[in-house]
Nucleic acid binder design. Structure first.
Length: 279
DNA sequence: AGACTGCCCTGATGGC
DNA sequence: TGCCATCAGGGCAGTC
């Protein structure tokens, strides 16, 4: 379940292994991987060949290869997507969806994705900000992030604060794990109505999200299983630092009350029923 | 218009 | 052992 910290770990790995290299071939092995590229998988592949990766950027959970300083290969990992640096001799993996080779004959870049929620698309002229994600808000680590503006927008929402945190058009990068962790840290119930919260309190929730994601990034991200890994296939260590997410029945680290889980938006919310009261 | 639901997908897991 | 239901959930289309 890659969220901002996990995507940033991958972005850094790509920056290290792929920047400066020229693409020799692009193979899309599963049409679903290019489902949002309207011109089709063959077009996506054709556009890539011969371009040089001049940078790797990220906004929220999206990242993109900057090609020839002009265009973009936009990537979203979905739930189980992985960008892997592998040997050109490696066999086609069970869930391999795309593979890129380079003119230097060195390592390949592979996109594996078990659950196929991830996808790739090519955006001409999208180097600075690909047009398909123009509606995605800056994330809390973006120099363009305006926290006061984000707080003001969230405060207009007559919905639960957790739902607002997960709305990528308000603030991006936060998914179910870090939403639960941030709400726990800020002692806020996820179903508190955003519009009824004070601006300082909403701001404190965003601060908590930024802090927990920074801590996760420092640990290489959160891995529960082999579905989230860095470009070398290694897991992150933040799972052992989680305080609420996935810890039903475990004592709240603050007050000892068992963490509970409730259904929310066809998924789960984990929180301390004592520290995080609905207001 | 804003809030919310359903759908896409596969593999691990648990109950019977 | 095997079969079925459930769960994981990001983002967007569609509904109310």
């Amino acid at each position: 379940m890659p969220e901002l910290p996990e995507v940033e770990v991958v972005r850094r790995g790509l920056d290290h292994h792929v920047r400066g290299r020229t693409i020799a071939s692009a193979i899309i092995r599963h049409p679903r991987a290019a489902r949002r590229h309207m011109a089709g998988p063959e077009d996506l592949a054709a556009q890539m060949v011969g371009t040089t990766v001049t940078g790797i950027a990220r906004r929220g959970k999206y990242m993109w290869l900057i090609l020839d300083e002009t265009d973009a290969l936009l990537m979203h990992l979905g739930m189980s997507g992985q960008m892997l640096i592998t040997s050109p001799d490696a066999e086609i993996a069970a869930h391999e969806r795309a593979r890129f080779t380079f003119t230097d004959g060195g390592s390949d870049l592979r996109f594996d994705d078990q659950r196929t929620f991830g996808h790739l698309m090519y955006d001409e002229g999208g180097a600075v900000l690909p047009s398909p994600i123009a509606h995605i808000a800056p994330d809390p680590f973006d120099p363009q992030f305006d926290q006061a503006a984000a707080v003001a927008r969230i405060k207009t929402k007559r919905t639960g604060i957790k739902r607002a945190l997960l709305d990528q058009t308000l603030v991006s990068g936060i998914g179910n794990i870090y939403a639960d962790e941030a709400l726990w840290a800020a002692k806020v119930h996820g179903e508190s109505t955003a519009s009824s919260m004070s601006k300082p309190r909403i701001s404190a929730v965003i601060d908590a999200a930024r802090e927990v994601m920074a801590a996760a990034l420092a640990q290489g991200g959160t891995s529960f299983d082999s579905l989230y890994v860095d470009v070398a296939g290694s897991s992150g260590y933040f799972a052992r630092s989680l305080t609420a997410y996935g810890l039903v029945g475990h004592p709240c680290p603050r007050c000892g009350t068992p963490i509970v889980r409730e259904q929310f938006m066809n998924r789960s919310s984990h929180f301390c029923p004592v520290c995080q009261r609905k207001r």
